[in-house]
Amino acid sequence: MTKNKFSLRRAVNNMNLVRFRFWFQIVAFVLVVYGGYIGLDLGDKLPTFACVFNGEGTGGKCYVGELQHDLKHPLEGFVGFAGYAFLISLGMFAVWFWALNKGWCGFVCPLGTMQDWLTMVREKTKIRYSEYSWANRGKIKSIKYILLILLLLLPVMIANSVFGLPKLPNGLSMPFCDICPGRMMIPAFTGHFNQFYIDFSSKTDLVMTTLGMIIVGLFLVGSFVKKRFFCYFCPMAALQYIFSKPALLKLYKDGSKCTKCGDCYRACDMDILEIADDVTSKNLVTEDCTLCLKCVAACPENGCLEANFMGATIFESTKEGFLVRMAMDQIKENHAH
């Protein structure tokens, strides 16, 4: 038996994912939110909420912001440079995205990290988490697509008269940024609280900025009681999912090894039922998945769930890993009884 021999694969599979992710997220957060100060410039097509409004601190820029900006052109312009630039941006976004797939959400996104921090605080205060009922969970799935369509359509309708409708007011030029809690929360980490405001200059601005303030309030309380509260509604997740199939990082499931015990579902911050109940699909990166790999860490079956990068398994569920993570691999001293 090779039980006690050291192997890298075994060490990885036995890792404390919670701790690994905690530090990975901190590093990513620092790079994305403060990277600009050390000259980091990852471009403006990042598939994560690297907020433009963060000013000089940001180590890159969020593509959803860029996308809304790109679309605010007269349609004629799309025949020329603007069209090319749009396609190149979209292509570049996809290339960035393919590297990590939805892992951008679970490991990099600063807004996601913030929510995880709030969850940690809640856990420490021993306040129970909230859950959506399965029915509601199904209903809110479509919200992110509606937001995505709106954020694509509104900028186009500012620059053009679509179907003979009058052009929209300019206040809607970055409609999603107006209501995105990242706009308020991410600059706050570089000491800029000036994104908390209500704009009275026009009716549209008034409505959009007030909506933004309401949403940031909901975000703070919501993600305190519900894990990854905002991610259910994130149009970035919707946009990413469109490109998710050819991505390099994957979450694979071997349904024949699954006992449907539901441990993965329990661990899932996004309450994805398929992860436990789907025993036929191989690729389990669903629309709401953040590829946080908590399900892999919670799975007690050898090789049932795995994180796969370009065909190579990088982290897979093992019985031993499960036991180590649940601290069931040995009897700890100082028991209560």
């Binding site: 006992t259 015990c261 441990d263 329990r266 908590k294 919670a298 007690p300 499960f322 036991l323 649940m326």
Partner: peptide, 14 residues
């Protein structure tokens, strides 16, 4: 014996 309790948050509620 096959399935063990898998806890996400080690608080009583969970």
């Amino acid at each position: 014996f096959n399935d063990m309790v898998a806890v996400d948050e080690w608080n009583l509620y969970d």
